[in-house]
Design a binder for these strands. Sequence first.
DNA 1: TAGATTGTTAATCGATTAACAATC
DNA 2: TAGATTGTTAATCGATTAACAATC
Lengths: 221, 221
Amino acid sequence: MSMEKRISMAVIRRLPRYFRYLSDLIRLDIQRISSKELSERMDITASQIRQDLNCFGGFGQQGYGYNVQSLNEEIAHILGVDRRFACILIGAGNMGKALANYENFRRRGFDITAIFDIAEDKVGTQINGIKVHHIDTMAKYLHRHPTDIAMLTVPNRTISDITDTVVKAGVLGIWNFTPTDLRLGDNVVVENVHLSDSLMVLGYRLNELRRNREAQGPGSV
Amino acid sequence: MSMEKRISMAVIRRLPRYFRYLSDLIRLDIQRISSKELSERMDITASQIRQDLNCFGGFGQQGYGYNVQSLNEEIAHILGVDRRFACILIGAGNMGKALANYENFRRRGFDITAIFDIAEDKVGTQINGIKVHHIDTMAKYLHRHPTDIAMLTVPNRTISDITDTVVKAGVLGIWNFTPTDLRLGDNVVVENVHLSDSLMVLGYRLNELRRNREAQGPGSV
DNA sequence: TAGATTGTTAATCGATTAACAATC
DNA sequence: TAGATTGTTAATCGATTAACAATC
């Protein structure tokens, strides 16, 4: 019933970055930090930091700044890093293997409980101690093991039956590594990675950098 | 000397998405499309499409719309997909292996010419036909083989010497998979992937979805 | 207390959307 | 030609930055 103000995506996408910098500060044994100091480290304005943090609550103290440890914990809580998510991984290709082996995710609360693939020679094997099942057994598995997130690393484009199965089974989040944009309605959250897009943007920006340099001539530093 | 208007990042990041949708339309044998039709497919406004495309030129025709094939080619050119980039991959771990095996990148003009790692048992091996060299030989290699892009998939945080070497050798773009934000000045473009950040944002949005559902009560559809 | 720094409101900037004249 | 749809200007919306009173 409370009149929560909606947090903008722009703010949400900055939260993990705050979390990283604050974790670094803890490692450096720094106990307090002002928005000004943090703004210099992060290369954003102090104003933005104060605005962002105030979306969630008054974590600071006038004349003092922010307590690094407790601010870190607050952001961890906002991000849900202090809870656990049951995940399945769909697609045991190279990217799937890389994700299954990446220990950091587990540290942040994301547990991969099972892997699914269509290739018979992969079914029955294990990746980083996680069993690979045949994709046809996925619906049954999800029925027995309530799952929060499906990580999607299948290479091809025939994924609508996969997403159907997953959504029907009550999965609420999809981490999508395929180049397809999934439109699954308001009952699921989709986070796209789209590596090719990222690489193409890098290519564009690189060409632009080169153009600007050439426009300035070879003499300038 | 020409007074080019600066293209905003928001527009640039949408370009690969246009490219993907237009490539799909070609596959579907659709020859022409209006901004309105495309807007429905892509789930953005027709106005935004026309604004975005007009940053680069008048690709459409009044009363007709856009020619799918030629618009696709224009965007391919803008993105630089019709040129080639020489890339090296630093870090032959699971993520490095996944990237080296991903054939799509080569199709888009990104050639991985060499892989570098510190682990002696990896040096001398090949991944997808690409040789793994010791990281200490990287400076020498870059001297002989001018390189556009370095893909960075090393796990740890001691990367400043790596980025130093790479930048000094004239590499202009870094595709960064490490959780560190690189600050390398105006002579290099850095594109971050930050998988953990993406996953944490998914976690946040999933929790938010769950909160909203619970707030509405279990009775509602 | 005086100084420092937040929380928060107001001003600015940029990006998206709407509208419509130009034109194919 | 008439109808359709762009290119482009103007209006709106949202996000960032500046400013300062509140307060530790």
